[in-house]
Design a binder for these strands. Sequence first.
DNA 1: ACAAAAGTGTTTATAATACACCCATGA
DNA 2: TCATGGGTGTATTATAAACACTTTTGT
Lengths: 257, 257
Amino acid sequence: MDIENFKSQFQADIKNSIPSHSVDCVVIGYAQEKLKILTLKFKNTEFWSLPGRFIEQEEDMNVAALRVLEFRTGLQNIFLEQFYTFGNTSRSDKKQMNAILKKVGISSEITINWFKQRFISTGYMALVDVNKCILQSDIFSESIEWKSIDDLPIFILDHKEIVSKAVRHLRNQMNYLPVGITLLPEIFTLKELQKLYEAILQKPLDRGNFQRKILKLGILIRLEKQLLGKAHKAPYLYKFDEKRYTELLENGIGFVS
Amino acid sequence: MDIENFKSQFQADIKNSIPSHSVDCVVIGYAQEKLKILTLKFKNTEFWSLPGRFIEQEEDMNVAALRVLEFRTGLQNIFLEQFYTFGNTSRSDKKQMNAILKKVGISSEITINWFKQRFISTGYMALVDVNKCILQSDIFSESIEWKSIDDLPIFILDHKEIVSKAVRHLRNQMNYLPVGITLLPEIFTLKELQKLYEAILQKPLDRGNFQRKILKLGILIRLEKQLLGKAHKAPYLYKFDEKRYTELLENGIGFVS
DNA sequence: ACAAAAGTGTTTATAATACACCCATGA
DNA sequence: TCATGGGTGTATTATAAACACTTTTGT
């Protein structure tokens, strides 16, 4: 799709969307022992944003979120959860939006006026395996990247606050979220699982206690040992017992050490 | 204000509000050892609703919620917290709205069309002392009442679901919510506090363990004994140490026995 | 004296925490 | 054989849960 086609398609889209309301997604992944957030960079600027979307008149709000996620990551059946709706008037910044639209090269009155509205935005948190994502940029953005949560770029509007509220939600609701099964590859070691938990909780856990507690839950299936070529005992590999994992999640899987 | 004035005022209000979005409040009180919900009955119908409001163009969303609460209860500085945003298309029901508006006696095209929109609604939970409220009805409603949470009336649209999600939020977040200080009168006995906790958690608590745990927290100030004229030991009266209470709430006050 | 409910104490079971020990592996 | 990290065991402490004992009060 070329630029002009994209622009007219976009104008058709916004005509069919409900005004003043959008969804913004905080897509959380995990790599190099860090939590990662999916971010988009606006063309010719240093501003980044979260993947978002408007809501069509005949579309459920969570479907709107799911669609933008499918578009951006190429994944289906993504786990996502609404965590907060941002409704302060101060979150719109006409000046900043104007400047960005200009740099990006949007001149259409309709589009500019659309973005000048005061928006209420509902935040969704999604958990994905970064290695399975095929990232998709668009006409507004010059790149789409995973950023570590302790090294985030400059965001537009209140997107920084949206991210921090999502991460807090992740931490608070950890015991009720399928963090292990969504953020890790299918097969992993206990060490890797522990590192994930430490990344989320931001504190070190006792190795022995972590292992005993999580094994006792019966949500892990032990596979053969991993041959690393390292100068120490080879760790077992594990995968999740999906059925039991989801059963237990209902009542919360607590293992804060 | 007479009916015609009210109607034209209402039309002016909706002109100044953002379309497609509203706030609905689940106002929670406590009386007769039961949790209570504030409900409004539509004129000439058997349908009840939650107190709600539209959001003005230049108004923060939580301010919109606060305003409807102040109007309905006569209270200021109410504790309230957003808990979920309801965004399914199925939640609008043009037929039901039409029928109700007719019964209520609304004939204005503008008003009817306004209510025919598809709305996204953000739910707020509020905690109040029922004895301090001065309830305020309006031109649409024939009464405003506290209903026990286990004996709720028939609600319009998805308001039943909104209530149950609010109550679940209350239960889940109990340790982070100022339930005692908002729902009870200033002065109370430990028994009364325990009954409140039992009403929220929906399970009986051990008296001895409850007393010891909560006293150890240091959030209660013991007053003189209560003279009941009953054939048993008189209980102490207590009030909250507000400063310490709010300090502890930050990290959660856990005493599920 | 007795019943009823308040206040406090005791016992037991369970879980959290810290850390120690042995094992497997490649250099 | 030594260092490294993996798997498992144990001792200590803290918390939860059940319930027993004593106190106060009006009848």
